[in-house]
Write a protein that binds this DNA or RNA. Structure first.
Lengths: 233, 233
DNA sequence: TAGATTGTTAATCGATTAACAATC
DNA sequence: TAGATTGTTAATCGATTAACAATC
């Protein structure tokens, strides 16, 4: 995972620190402490200080951290002081939501190309971007020098398309498809799967008798449930 | 995080195992091994066996795991043998994409209520669900006995709404807003933030001189970038 | 100054891995 | 049987925490 001597788990917390600092800054505050950040995150102050200490000294004893300065440093460390051009693969419901999502503003990413294989979508403008046919994906990505992509296509195509992305030179794939794509070690993949997140939580809130649970018709292969039986309202 | 003697990190891998088993089963296979699963996931076979051993013995020496049997066991452990009614808060672009997402089929979750505070959306049908006004959120959730929710609203409202959900009896919140909501210990929250995932990856693919990076106009407050400056093609 | 908070050390705690007996 | 693969143990490895000197 990491061509680096810094633990990946530490790297993974830095974006969360960055988000938390933005949140605290919104309240007009200029300085914060590892204690305050820890309260926002449910993380111990010691861990936050230890994590940051891998990269340098950013605080002042007795005072804490200047929020803007620490944000700048974290942006530099994470490589988001400049904006990355991002290609979005798939202009279905998920792809459209990604295009309309305003949370990317100021995050270091902007979507500059959208691809789809549906002839009905080709040429359509979504959030001011023309949908480009899948055939032109490789050439466009190479021409634009795009290294970061978001994959929002059906699971059955994800592995094949990911391989094409890697051939085109892509190094980071944010995968919305519910499948683990396998890529060479120099390529980074992150999965965003709501089902995984939900199932993680239901482990802890065990079904109780008095509660809203509906029997699954066929437990063994739920994909065979007819739309007549389970009505997705 | 865990009223349980099983490490949370282990619990978090179970849904991924479940997803991988579904994937292998799609190929028509009936049996798999910790080696095969590990290859799909980039996880060591020893870790998979160790994880599963926390919950029982599900395999056969020399043979491996019966896929359907192991899936059943994992569903039982994760509490998704029956379907959970899920309330979706927010019917904007993200909310709509969630409603249209078909990856929930057979996962143990089905969205049975959608709420929004936008008068223009109230009463509209999205994926056959009526959008319910926010005022009726608490009563509806309590009436339906809903314990699992997905939060797809702007960051500035997320904390306040999360608190109302907790008051209504909700125990699990899948948060799409880019903010850490703070909840009592008996409530579980998972964050799904594409920016966090992307920034995690850019750490490893450090900017190179020959590459598509665009200067940020105003580094200090990127939300002030005018749409004139950054052209979304 | 007194109080607060950092960065860092050492100790603790926990997770992963390697190895192997058991056994299908 | 021979080969394969589990479940488990013990060793290794790594992450978290507590504590504190330094210092703002």
């Amino acid at each position: 995972m990491a061509p680096s001597n810094i633990p990946d788990i530490v790297v993974g917390r830095l974006p969360i620190y960055l988000r938390t600092l933005a949140h605290i800054a919104r309240g007009g505050q200029e300085v914060t402490s590892s204690y305050e950040m820890g309260e926002h995150l449910g993380i111990s102050p010691a861990q936050i200080r230890k994590d940051l200490s891998h990269f340098g000294e950013f605080g002042k004893q007795g005072t804490g951290y200047n929020i803007e300065y620490l944000r700048e440093q974290l942006r530099r460390i994470l490589g988001v002081k400049q904006e990355w051009d991002v290609a979005l693969i798939g202009a279905g419901a998920v792809g459209k939501a990604i295009l309309r999502y305003d949370g990317f503003r100021g995050s270091g990413f902007r979507i500059t190309a959208v691809f789809d294989n549906d002839p009905n979508k080709i040429g359509c403008k979504i959030s001011q971007l023309d949908v480009i046919p899948a055939e032109r994906m490789t050439s466009t990505i190479q021409q634009m020098g795009i290294r970061v992509t978001m994959l929002a296509i059906p699971a059955e195509n994800a592995q094949r398309v990911a391989e094409r992305l890697v051939e085109a030179g892509v190094e980071a794939i944010l995968n919305y498809a519910p499948i683990n794509v396998i890529v060479p070690p120099h390529v980074y993949v992150q999965h965003l799967d709501p089902v995984v997140a939900l199932q993680h939580m239901t482990y802890y809130i065990a079904p109780k008798p008095t509660q809203a649970l509906n029997p699954i018709i066929s437990a063994l292969d739920p994909r065979e449930i007819g739309s007549d039986n389970i009505v997705h309202l």
